[in-house]
Design a protein around this nucleic acid. Sequence first.
DNA 1: GTAGGCATGCAATTCGATTTGCACAATTCG
DNA 2: CGAATTGTGCAAATCGAATTGCATGCCTAC
Lengths: 347, 347
Amino acid sequence: MAKAAGVSPTTVSQAFNGRRTVSRQTLERVHDVAERIGYRPNAVARGLRESRMNVIALVLRPLDTLESFLPEGVDFFMRFAGSAALSAMEHGYSLMLVSDPTKPGAPVSSLAADVCIVTDPFENDPVLTLLKNQHIPALTVGVDPARPGVVPSIDSNTRAETFEVLDHLESAGGTTVGLALGTDRNAWNLTAKRAYVEWCGARGREPIIYENPETRGEAAGERIAAEAFDRVDRVERRPDAIYCLTGRHASGLVAAARSRGIRVPEDLLVAAGSDALQNRTGRPTVTAMDLRPEETARRAVELAVQLFEGSDAELPTSAPGGILRVRESTSRDPVRSASRRRGPSSD
Amino acid sequence: MAKAAGVSPTTVSQAFNGRRTVSRQTLERVHDVAERIGYRPNAVARGLRESRMNVIALVLRPLDTLESFLPEGVDFFMRFAGSAALSAMEHGYSLMLVSDPTKPGAPVSSLAADVCIVTDPFENDPVLTLLKNQHIPALTVGVDPARPGVVPSIDSNTRAETFEVLDHLESAGGTTVGLALGTDRNAWNLTAKRAYVEWCGARGREPIIYENPETRGEAAGERIAAEAFDRVDRVERRPDAIYCLTGRHASGLVAAARSRGIRVPEDLLVAAGSDALQNRTGRPTVTAMDLRPEETARRAVELAVQLFEGSDAELPTSAPGGILRVRESTSRDPVRSASRRRGPSSD
DNA sequence: GTAGGCATGCAATTCGATTTGCACAATTCG
DNA sequence: CGAATTGTGCAAATCGAATTGCATGCCTAC
């Protein structure tokens, strides 16, 4: 392109990349012409030649299973993606949001990245297998439950966080604590379930588990309530506290309990494993684990860059610890609960 | 790649793309081998040849001016980006979040997309000029104030929405209505300002405008309050209602007013032009214009795809109308306000 | 005065897939 | 039986930039 304007064909390349010496005069002219006609090297051609696009791909695994996009409910992933994009830019990369590349109709661009971040991989995730075959470096956020170590990963602290929430429910007055989770076989569900069973075992209690497909969304709350409170044959196993992994299950459950005359938090304590919008805005507000997606994303991007560029700095390989946001749904203490509900007229 | 495994060099291409007839036998073998070794055409090579990557770039213009990423305050853009990503996937594209390609250190990948969406362009936005020079089709969300029509765009309905908010403040009891906005010279600020001045003119009132750099974030609320309420020389121009374009200004202002003993909504009505998290969760909750970023993003992606693929269907060229979410900050009516504040114990 | 060293620019190759043009075979028709 | 048609596969060119090898010219040194 600039060769037509200037006089040299490949000297242009040298003028920019400076692998070899170019006379000052030539260099100046090349730069002048480039500036004048607004020359930019073709990113795709360069990418082909150099085998580097400066692109980080992000596969949001759980979104694949959600048929339609429910933005109010996927708080975590939007915060994650936004922070990842900013971090990528800081490192000189663009962030590309791609769909599951193993799906039949997936665009080829899904594999056009230098390195790929996969959040919440499934058990034996085929995406990881595909990426490995294509020799695209990959890392996961949350480990593949069946194959820890296939690729580097940022370990979510699901186990520890599960204990923290369960302990909190217990100390808030819960004696029969149930667990509600999704059916996707990913690290998030599987690890939490295992931790919960262990926690129950240590206390000599029988686990009470409610499983609902992720796709069901808030409607799952109704199912949970029905199973927990409508069946007379299980009255002795009726929970007085339920830990819902997803925020949407939690808010659905609160509504379903309410419609049955079950008060939260008086009759039922509810906590969520991921802090979503509804938890902060609903009535009552719902106690939730803030997983700090922004910081997690930042670490994932740094690891991705390292993986691709091959630096050898020591990087964190686990997510930052979650922070439990205690709200009204687990606060039976009338004083605190009242002060939290005070209106704007108080100064 | 598959040529080594099979027996043909370019027959592979034909077997997949079917431009020409291939014997069934050969076709089967090619497919078998491809399946076995997990062959995928190289996206970059194909992209170079075909001049199409199946990638849509998204430049979030306002993010460039924000030094650090403040996720709690950029609600709009994350919702926009998330929805755009999903829509892109539905059309067989990936969405790439890129930084301002005119910046010196910008990665080449910023220009590797087929088409580019620019949100809230600045006046005479250099990004649009660059894209035009590079012959990358582009569209904007919100029009370049100085050059309407340089590229196709999804028109934000800022003018109409500004009137709606101002009318609402007036009918809620505001008599002296001020406007707080940012200093970026983009369509959002400029259009709202013009509409506000016009609105005041129709009522024979003098405009009261507070301008603060976007980067200042919630701290801007303190500046607004200082200017509005601390200066004794302006006591006759003291506003009893302020329309803050950004949600962060609004929540900052509410806090700053409160610290001065000014009650919201009793002494001061506050509304925000973009619905952010803080508006829904703060005390009091803040009336805000929900700009429906998800639907806007969907339309932008559809227009982008059309622009690139050259179909000729008629598409909407304006954003869906915003919805005014009336909340406590503009509700002086004690009945409504009380019912909104009722706690969870009511059934 | 010639050999060696350095500066400088160009031609040709490479990246991997797609596409065009061409060659060879088999089949059909006059 | 020769010619036209169709089926089938390969060689070569293409996309745009980067890199390697080679050639030229100029200068210094022995």
